[in-house]
Structure formats: structure tokens, C-alpha cells
């Protein structure tokens, strides 16, 4: 049994480095696929997934408790929906979102709050 079958993962330590790397990937012709959010050690883990020539590339970043990650929707507009989804479901706050639904992409004021947090 494999411990980890995600190939081609780069761990990134700081948010500015995430933005710089994502910008570099766009310039290199990578397509934004999606982002995964997981609960991890009181904080959250974000896995950004990109694709080029049918190969996937993953960036992993740990969001510390209370930290507000920067949105990459200024680089890839299409990231805005998934970032808004994680604001709803995990209670994260992404700074600089191209369109910010303020935690109400899916959830109404009466919905359960941050159901996946």
C-alpha cells in the first residue's frame, strides 16, 4: 500500500512564495485545475493543482490557525469559485479575491456555519 500517491508535489513555506510560484507557473503555460483544502494540525492544508501537457503539478501550503491566505484569483481568475467555496465550508478568508461572496457562495445566513471546518 502506498503512503502517498500524489506525484510531483512542491511544499511551499510562505504565502508570498505561493503567489510567486503560481505566477511563474502561469508564465510557464500551466492551466489551473483546482485547489484542495484539508484540516491539518489546527490549521489547514491547501493543495493547488495545475496541469500542463497532461501532467499534473501540485503545490502544498500549510495555512496556520488564524492566517488569511492570499487569493490567486488575480493570477488565475478561475480560482475565485474554489476559494469562495472554502470560505463557506472551512471558514477561511482569502485576501484579494476577484469576487468575494463573503462566505455565501452556497450558504445562506441560516445555513450551518463552516460545515467542513
Amino acid at each position: 500500500m502506498l503512503d502517498n500517491v500524489i506525484q510531483n508535489v512542491t511544499d511551499i513555506k510562505s504565502m508570498p512564495e505561493v503567489l510567486k510560484t503560481v505566477e511563474g507557473l502561469k508564465n510557464d503555460g500551466y492551466r489551473y485545475v483546482t485547489m484542495i483544502c484539508l484540516k491539518a494540525n489546527e490549521g489547514h492544508e491547501l493543495i493547488y493543482i495545475f496541469e500542463k501537457d497532461d501532467k499534473l503539478k501540485h503545490l502544498r501550503y500549510f495555512v496556520k490557525p488564524g492566517e488569511k491566505p492570499k487569493s490567486v484569483s488575480g493570477i488565475y481568475l478561475c480560482a475565485l469559485l474554489i476559494e469562495n467555496e472554502y470560505q463557506d465550508l472551512f471558514g477561511l478568508t482569502f485576501e484579494g479575491l476577484a469576487i468575494d461572496y463573503k462566505g455565501h457562495l452556497y450558504l445562506t445566513p441560516n445555513s450551518p456555519k463552516t460545515p467542513l471546518a
Partner: peptide, 28 residues
Amino acid sequence: EVVYYVKGKGTKNLERLKVRTPTFANIP
């Protein structure tokens, strides 16, 4: 393209399932 992410922790339930569907990618 649909993207499935699964994470198991050695129990009968998955720890995390994430599905990125094609319409989600196409709406923007």
C-alpha cells in the same frame, strides 16, 4: 475533466473526498 481527490487514514471512512466537476471549471 472531473477531478477526484481522496484521502484515507486507515479507517473504513475516507478522511476527505473532494470533487472538482467540469461545470465548476467552466462557470468562470
